[in-house]
Amino acid sequence: MADSSAFSDLPLVRGERVQIRPGRHLSIAYHPGTYQADTVVFFGHGGGGCKDQWRELWRALVDQGYSLVAWDLLGHGDSAKPRQPQAYAWSELVADQLEILRRYAARRNILVAHSFGTGLGLSALLALPHSLPQVTVDGALLLGTQLHRPLSRGGLMALPAWVLELLRPVLAKGFRQRAWHPVADPRLVAYEEHLTRRNRLYVFKSLLQNAQWPDADALAQLTLPTYVLAGDSDGLTPASGGEALARQLPTASFQVLEQCGHQLMLERPAQVLAAFQTMLQKLDLRPGLRG
């Protein structure tokens, strides 16, 4: 097995458990910015992930003075992990994100999301004008995403959760083959797989059962600048689906990262950061551009 000791100083993105809504406790990391404090970047991870997967962007944007917010979805990382499937209803997860936006939003706000988190983020953006008319999101960077719901309810995930736990080694192998490019650093892959051992498969099963995904036709309402990035070897959310999403969004740009799988912000952090900076430039939000 690859040595993951290079990651012994992690996690970098550390949070505190907060009751975000009655009975719902999430681990939220908040970094108040300096000379770009009135621009807040919100990071939403994917299913089975955690907020520390944003560590490379987090480190860079701390240095650039932005305010940052990242959270572990319910059932993930250091957040609470209720066993009731209804706790992971799509509407409940979207409501959690809306409350995070309400609490931490500033004058300018940017959403960065990955995989399952992109669906939640898009649903939250669609709900924003009615739920939080006082909050504006100025741009979005979406990684490893799709136009239509990418998650299947059938196959092995139809089995009881206790059976899935027995099959965890098989599931982990399949995920590794589909999620990572063959050139990915084996130490990184080993470290991330070590973290996933904390994930309970009853949570993932509940996510699959409850996932709804935003309505494709409704996406035309989202006119904020959006950048969609895909990995050329993503076996979970193929690039073609991300391109279809970008075509559906009125002001979206699309880019494929070479030699990259599903974990874009971990496999190609420099390219993801460059795309983020390009978006900030178009929004006139780069450090030094505003007084």
Rank of each mutant, 00 (worst) to 15 (best):
E99W: 02
L111Y: 10
P85N: 14
W90D: 09
R107C: 08
N109L: 09
A80Q: 15
Q97V: 03
A95F: 00
P85V: 13
W90L: 05
I100F: 08
R103I: 04
R107V: 08
L98D: 04
I110V: 15
I110M: 12
S123D: 15
S123R: 04
A89D: 15
G119T: 04
A124G: 05
P85A: 09
L101E: 05
L122T: 10
L125G: 04
A95D: 14
A80R: 02
A87E: 01
F116Y: 13
I100E: 08
L120F: 10
A124R: 03
E92W: 01
G117L: 07
L93N: 01
Q84G: 05
S123V: 10
E92R: 09
L122I: 07
Y88Q: 05
P82E: 08
P85K: 13
R83I: 08
S79A: 02
S123P: 06
L93H: 12
G117K: 12
D96L: 11
N109S: 10
N109A: 10
V112G: 06
A113S: 14
R108K: 15
Q84R: 10
Q84I: 05
V94Q: 01
E99P: 01
R102L: 03
A105F: 14
L122W: 04
T118S: 13
S123C: 10
A106R: 15
L122D: 01
A87P: 01
A113V: 11
S115P: 04
G121H: 09
L93K: 02
E92K: 09
L125A: 07
R107E: 15
A89V: 03
L111S: 03
F116I: 01
A80W: 01
S115T: 04
L101Y: 10
S91C: 07
L120H: 07
F116S: 02
G117D: 04
S79D: 08
Q84Y: 07
K81D: 07
A105I: 11
A106P: 10
P85S: 11
A95P: 00
L111P: 06
S115V: 07
D96G: 01
Y88S: 09
A89N: 09
P82L: 12
L101F: 15
H114S: 11
L101N: 00
L101G: 01
W90F: 15
G121P: 03
G119D: 03
F116E: 02
E99N: 07
V112Y: 04
A87I: 00
A105Q: 12
T118Y: 01
R83C: 06
